[in-house]
Lab assay of single mutants.
Amino acid sequence: MALNTPQITPTKKITVRAIGEELPRGDYQRCPQCDMLFSLPEINSHQSAYCPRCQAKIRDGRDWSLTRLAAMAFTMLLLMPFAWGEPLLHIWLLGIRIDANVMQGIWQMTKQGDAITGSMVFFCVIGAPLILVTSIAYLWFGNRLGMNLRPVLLMLERLKEWVMLDIYLVGIGVASIKVQDYAHIQAGVGLFSFVALVILTTVTLSHLNVEELWERFYPQRPATRRDEKLRVCLGCHFTGYPDQRGRCPRCHIPLRLRRRHSLQKCWAALLASIVLLLPANLLPISIIYLNGGRQEDTILSGIMSLASSNIAVAGIVFIASILVPFTKVIVMFTLLLSIHFKCQQGLRTRILLLRMVTWIGRWSMLDLFVISLTMSLINRDQILAFTMGPAAFYFGAAVILTILAVEWLDSRLLWDAHESGNARFDD
């Protein structure tokens, strides 16, 4: 018995066209964080690309023209004298008006014999932002004059995390709450300039795509075929072959399989920071003279006294001054041990922890910024005066060393310790 099946006739004509040209192939790229070699397709503007294995951002879609970056830099340069030299806060102490600005706080630190601690604050609040705007201006002028731009481009990517104007702005709020127990506070004209400078700096850093600047100024022929001998440069993120001198053909720094002496430098910085954190938390970090009496505060006791007036601000200072430094030390110690013992479990967790400490590390400088600003506000000789204690130097040095330890660690070593050939990683 035959089955009668109805015929289905399409209502619209289906047209099949042959592909007349070869589909576009992607360029081969190595991930600078996990060293995976993959094919990167062509990316349009405002599109980002991520590593298929570790999800690290390979290409950032946010990109401004150099002219727009230069305009932002010149605007920031105009704001800087007002943000640093004009009063941020006014207080009335014992019937006398006192003005506080950024430069005055750094000068008070240096004047009291601790120039190293003052230079830490100076670099993060004044030096690094000033280098940022002058570097962008150098790129703008240098591109037109045919100057060598490689050193500036190499420095810009590392400079971003040292620009800490946003953290200093939080420190202004913390210092205001600490001082309000002794005097009446009012915002100064410099505060508005400083807030504007923070906003412009944040926007500029978020749109400063150094890798795209490398592509514009020093374009290189990408690798179009897969080759395990391809290496990625950690300076400019170019994937290719080393030249005859073993250097990256684009930025001219040595092109090595792994960062040289990464573990040794990381261990040295980490152990030194552990040693410095002990006096930083045991010795007094601030000293207040009130009517001839002397009151010393460690980091913890200062947080407890701050909690009596504002528990939320005390929580912020606790996280930045105690929780973050010790968390960074514990995480980095764990990561280094996992590399030495070739741990194969929990790779995803370790990668996330490394990215976390990379982002939060700079916030530990908050305590030094609060001390710097408070020193310029309260300084009335023996009637009422505020000065920093010996722990300030140890704390600042420990924070900087932990930042350097994270920067010096080559994250690809975590993958080397893991089993080879993993296309995915999980716990």
Rank of each mutant, 00 (worst) to 15 (best):
W214P: 00
M76H: 04
L88K: 03
D60K: 11
V179A: 14
F74H: 03
Y289I: 04
V170G: 15
L40E: 05
Q186M: 12
I339R: 10
I400A: 15
R247L: 11
S338P: 14
Q345V: 11
G26D: 13
D367Y: 00
Q55C: 11
L270T: 11
Q344T: 12
A83W: 03
L377N: 01
F326T: 11
F369W: 08
L278A: 11
N101M: 02
L40G: 12
I316H: 14
L300Y: 13
A137Y: 15
V313A: 02
I378W: 00
L414W: 06
L78F: 04
V329P: 08
I96V: 09
M332A: 10
C54I: 00
R62F: 10
G235L: 01
W84N: 15
T358K: 09
I131K: 01
Y50M: 09
I371Y: 01
A49W: 10
K13N: 10
G361M: 02
I177P: 13
F341H: 11
K13C: 07
R294C: 03
N281Q: 12
D63G: 15
F123L: 02
S411A: 07
A397D: 04
L373S: 04
Q55E: 12
G142I: 02
L78V: 05
R250T: 12
S308H: 09
L154D: 02
F395M: 11
P249K: 06
C236E: 00
R247P: 05
S376L: 10
R294H: 05
G146S: 03
Q220L: 07
L156G: 07
A385D: 05
R30M: 15
K328L: 00
G240V: 05
L335S: 05
A187N: 08
R97W: 14
A398C: 13
V195K: 03
P254S: 08
S338W: 13
I339Y: 11
D35P: 04
I19V: 12
R350G: 12
F238C: 05
S273R: 00
E157H: 15
L323S: 12
L278P: 04
G113T: 11
K160W: 02
L40Y: 10
L323G: 09
H418Q: 08
I43T: 13
R221F: 08
T202I: 14
I285H: 00
Q112L: 05
C236I: 00
C233T: 02
R258M: 08
L139V: 07
N291M: 08
P325L: 01
V189C: 09
R221D: 10
L257S: 04
P390M: 12
H261G: 03
L197T: 06
M80T: 13
I106D: 01
A423N: 13
W267N: 07
S193W: 02
N101S: 09
R258G: 02
L37M: 15
R17L: 12
D99K: 11
N101W: 03
E228I: 05
S301C: 07
M365C: 06
P279R: 05
V179K: 02
M304I: 07
E42G: 11
V399K: 00
L283Y: 06
I322T: 07
G173E: 00
W415T: 13
G113L: 13
A196I: 15
L377V: 05
T334P: 06
L156M: 07
L153R: 00
L276A: 05
A2L: 09
G95M: 07
W140K: 05
R250N: 04
Y168W: 12
N4C: 09
A320S: 06
D427I: 15
P254H: 02
L336F: 08
P325I: 02
P222N: 05
D227F: 06
P222V: 09
Q244G: 11
A312K: 12
I14N: 13
L353G: 13
G118Q: 09
L404Y: 03
R216L: 05
Y138N: 01
G20V: 12
F393D: 03
Y168N: 15
R62K: 06
K265T: 02
E42R: 13
S308D: 06
I14S: 10
V152G: 04
P41G: 11
F238L: 05
H261K: 01
F192Q: 08
L271T: 06
C54N: 00
I311N: 13
P222W: 08
C233M: 00
R25G: 10
K160D: 09
F217I: 14
I288T: 01
A187D: 08
Y394Q: 05
Q220S: 07
A49T: 05
E86P: 05
V174H: 02
L37H: 08
L300K: 02
Q104H: 12
L366V: 11
G421F: 15
Q112K: 05
T349P: 13
I126F: 09
L89H: 09
Y394K: 01
C236Y: 01
E228R: 05
W267Q: 06
T110L: 03
D166E: 15
F123R: 00
A100L: 02
E22A: 09
G396E: 02
Q244T: 10
I136H: 04
I172R: 00
T9E: 13
I383K: 01
W140D: 04
A115G: 03
P41E: 10
R144F: 06
R216K: 07
L208I: 14
V125Q: 07
S193T: 03
E161V: 15
L66K: 11
L77N: 10
P129T: 07
N44T: 12
P249W: 06
I383E: 01
F393H: 10
L257H: 13
L255D: 02
M365N: 08
